[in-house]
Design a protein around this nucleic acid. Structure first.
Lengths: 261, 261
DNA sequence: CAGTGGTCTAGACCACGCT
DNA sequence: GCGTGGTCTAGACCACTGT
């Protein structure tokens, strides 16, 4: 190009545009349900071609932050009724990590209308009991790093989880340091930083009524069950993480797609 | 454009290209792990601009069918997803159906331990309400064959389900005849008999307390929630069946495996 | 009708992987 | 060095939604 080529210093231009628009949505500058600037407007504002604008918008769309309607415009997505833990999110997370973009699935999910969130965390070193040894496929008593989280959005607890990692794998790394939580990119990113690219995830799903401790920490209303997800994270054939995730059933809908091809 | 604009007769060109490539991958013409034709090659083959080719490839990428590597090429995803139990069930059914070992053998359900079972069934023709029209991706009011089942094992109700098929697809076929239930091989087999091989299944999972009708028909003990699975059965990109399955949570554990390769 | 997003073309330069 | 995908530009026509 004659002018303003600068295509590849730092992040790609369309990523920068996406980042800026993402910030406007998350900060509330573009409220849920409202119209984004038109593509023509964005072309002028960022001084880029339409293709670049559309590439940026397609990023936001794939993150579920926007929806577009032909002839009308592109809108910031209004708050979803419930959180959707799409199984595909692991795939998306992985691609994000690889491409250097951040944001955990949780934060992405919560972005719309749940801008502020924090978490409680407790780290411990424990020996594997029978259940965990079985899930990991290791010997009884193998040392694990047990991390307990409670995720809050807008002050309301959304889910609690107990995540275990093999201690020998993470001891002495930043992952074992609670002060690094929340870690942008989540588990996927943490494991990636150790050189492990996750290859599969297995989730077993159950539901039951919460016990008193759960209904207290998660503030589960009466008559609402909890969904329990037992998750195993695989690198090749090795289980590198086992987590038990507890979510009030009125705050979640799980989404799985099974390809038979 | 001067020549071959024809941008909008039927599906968009990039969708057609995506469809063709998808077919090659799913049919095995492009085996898992192998290289797709380069973008330049595809441009020539389909006589489209590079942007169109890339749009098509981005569709496949978002479906998890391909991965691309800068400087190397675009590859068909190496390992197709494998599932267990609830999910593996569909795969097993499909293999059974394909191998033609139907009349002789037990159904997959029986294999899992539903040895002796019977079912209550009610068939109706109904118009699609908003929810169902949305799940099917068809117009409001489209006629559906609604089939209600209650499955019993050893006299105890295990699950109830409401399964809908497109009426125009099944009207006048043996599938529309309740007296043919239970149909060995289940839905997979039924659709196969119409020439449709299912390619994917999507399940959305929720949990809540049962209502009084549910706790009666399913004999759900007090304090036990039900798991609700909303299932969409796909043949290519078309939804051919929508089912809502209700299972007492104390009688089920769902198992999903997500491959990220 | 004007404005919007959806689709498409025909070029271009870049960073990367391989040979 | 050459081929690959990644990014970007500057146009174009279309279908749809609004006034």
């Amino acid at each position: 190009m004659a002018d303003v080529p600068t295509p590849h210093q730092g992040a790609a231009r369309y990523r920068q545009v996406a980042e800026e628009l993402r910030h406007r949505i998350l900060s509330g500058a573009i409220p849920p349900g409202s119209l984004l600037p038109s593509e023509a407007t964005l072309m002028a504002e960022f001084a880029v071609a339409r293709g670049t604008v559309r590439e940026a918008l397609s990023v936001l769309k794939s993150e579920g932050l926007t929806v577009s309607e032909k002839g009308r415009g592109t809108f910031a997505r209004s708050a979803p009724p419930v959180r959707r833990l799409a199984a595909d999110r692991y795939r998306a997370e992985l691609e994000q990590v690889r491409s250097g973009e951040l944001g955990t699935s949780f934060t992405v999910d919560q972005r719309i209308g749940w801008a502020e969130y924090h978490l409680d965390k407790t780290f411990n070193e424990v020996a594997a009991d029978e259940t965990r040894a079985d899930l990991f496929g290791v010997a009884l008593g193998t040392m694990l790093l047990e991390r307990r989280f409670v995720f809050y959005a807008k002050g309301l607890p959304q889910q609690s989880s107990v995540s275990c990692l093999l201690l020998e794998m993470v001891a002495g790394t930043p992952i074992a340091d609670p002060s690094n939580e929340p870690w942008p990119g989540g588990n996927t990113s943490q494991l990636y930083s150790l050189g492990h690219t996750i290859t599969a995830v297995r989730e077993q799903v159950r539901a039951r009524m919460p016990n008193s401790a759960e209904s207290e920490t998660l503030r589960v209303p009466g008559g609402v069950p909890v969904v329990i997800i037992t998750r195993q994270t695989y690198v090749e054939d090795r289980v590198v993480e086992v987590a038990e995730i507890t979510i009030p059933a009125d705050r979640v809908s799980l989404d799985y797609r099974i390809d038979l091809t």
